[in-house]
Design a protein around this nucleic acid. Structure first.
Lengths: 138, 138
DNA sequence: ATAATTATATCGTAACATACGATATAATAA
DNA sequence: TTATTATATCGTATGTTACGATATAATTAT
């Protein structure tokens, strides 16, 4: 049973290795993780960043500051609690995140076109299923 | 048609966001990329690293040196051409790579167990199909 | 043999990136 | 009014990333 899981992970990493975008930009791992967090979660502030990355809040604050300077994020004040900051991706932030975590759309389209209609449907269904179930994880 | 591809990517990033391992180690993006390259490709030397990351060969050489010092990689001389170095993952290197690119096996197993037998089969088949096709990318 | 090429390695240097403790500010809650 | 919470900033330290220049050693071409 857990061998199935290992096999799935091998497929998973193979897919990413062969279909990711080329590595162009010099970008740090922490920056990518913060972009992921801000994209996927509602209401992310500096404290959520610190908790998620297991770093101190002042370091998180500095990450955010640099990312704002680089125009990857922008800040908004929470109107209900003006101590809080709400983070959002800028368009360049979305682009950087996409190039560093998604599959290359050109390659993916090419690969999907090589499949039979039936197989394409299987892939769509599987990804949908898994992403829905994934959201139930703690 | 390309909207399907965008949807697949949304599923893809959702799956990773919800099922990756917690971010423990302070590790750079370049280090992860090198670990991925060495794991997935045969006969990787310093030059392949430089080309893959689009950095100069001396920088690549220094990355490799530091990664050997940290016991993430080890070197072997190519017996057929003793100028060349062949890189391999150490066990700690495999572990670091796994924690930073694979899905959390505990979460994955839990999620797979929530699915019906039929659905599980769909997921397995889809990942297998896609990983096989992915290898045909340039 | 000698020269050219190829694959790495090392040195010097520079610019960032990363992180934390200490401290400060401002908003909210007790 | 005081305590708490959410950020921000300063000083400091270490690590990372990168490149040009240069060096070494193995292989290939002439």
């Amino acid at each position: 049973m857990s061998s199935n899981v290992k096999r799935l992970n091998e497929y998973w990493t193979d897919i990413y290795f062969h279909m990711h975008y080329p590595h162009k930009e010099k970008i740090s791992h922490q920056v990518i993780r913060i972009l992921q967090l801000v994209e996927k979660k509602e209401e992310v502030g500096v404290n959520e960043v610190a908790t998620y990355l297991q770093i101190s809040h002042n370091t998180a604050s500095e990450h955010v500051k640099r990312m704002v300077e680089k125009n990857l994020l922008f800040k908004e004040r929470d109107l209900l609690d003006e101590r809080r900051v709400l983070l959002h991706l800028t368009q360049p932030g979305k682009d950087v995140l996409h190039r560093n975590t998604s599959l290359d759309e050109g390659k993916l389209e090419q690969v999907m076109n090589q499949l039979a209609d039936e197989e394409r449907a299987v892939v769509e269904q599987a990804f949908k299923l898994l992403s829905e179930q994934a959201k139930t994880c703690l």
